[in-house]
Design a protein around this nucleic acid. Structure first.
Lengths: 117, 117
DNA sequence: CATAGTGTTCTACTACATTATAACACACGT
DNA sequence: ACGTGTGTTATAATGTAGTAGAACACTATG
């Protein structure tokens, strides 16, 4: 399920790109799958077609999607994340919330601990 | 250590606010501690004074900081995060990286798993 | 070859984060 | 009372994300 949060500080364009990648890594979108038409996506998300277009173009440049003029956007590669990792993440999310950490702060902490790359 | 990433899609203003909160929750800034002068912070971070000011004002409104005209900004409340949680986060960060997940995608996954709030 | 479904490009407009610069206001030590 | 260090406010200029709307181009199907 792809959604955008208009209150977020993260540009809608980036949110869409990241959400598509998320769907892929969670295995909900698989190699070869066709994405909905850009106009439909735009309407569903309540954003402009151009915004969707720019998001998907970024993913094409990254090699995640594949586009065919007149046909549509397709998933070109998919690496699925182990389910255990997701569960582990869920556990940590709960603990952080219990400690009074909110979404944004959780992200910063994860980044603080990321190091490298 | 507070830093801003100019390439990030997250507004500098927000980055600064989040970084200060991070320093507090990690225990590096404690209740009553005085922050560096806004001009000094601005120079150190390579941003404009106004930007620092807006970031800190947000934190004042949140009740995290306390400001005294002519004196400075002070930490007004501090809740420190358990060290085990940090270590747990570090562990999962490593695993995610091994699975080819990058910074941005890691954030999206964390948010996906967050639910509620 | 006509039509419907798709992606593509362009231009104009708006909103907002950020910068730059300056002037103003409060606190404290001398 | 002054000067230095601090926060505060205001204005103008710039850059980028996002919107809106239209026209264009490719693909498949009948």
């Amino acid at each position: 399920m792809i959604v955008v949060d208009r209150r977020s500080v993260i540009p809608v364009q980036k949110q869409i790109a990241l959400q598509v990648k998320k769907e892929i890594i969670l295995g909900k979108l698989r190699e070869g799958d066709k994405l909905p038409p850009v106009r439909e996506l735009a309407q569903r998300l309540g954003v402009n077609v151009n915004t969707v277009l720019r998001a998907l173009d970024d993913l094409v440049h990254e090699g995640v999607l594949d586009v065919q003029h007149g046909k549509g956007y397709f998933v070109s590669k998919s690496e699925i994340l182990p389910k255990e990792l997701i569960e582990e993440l869920e556990g940590i999310a709960e603990k952080l919330k219990s400690s009074g950490v909110d979404r944004s702060l959780a992200m910063v902490l994860l980044m603080e601990v990321w190091k490298g790359e």
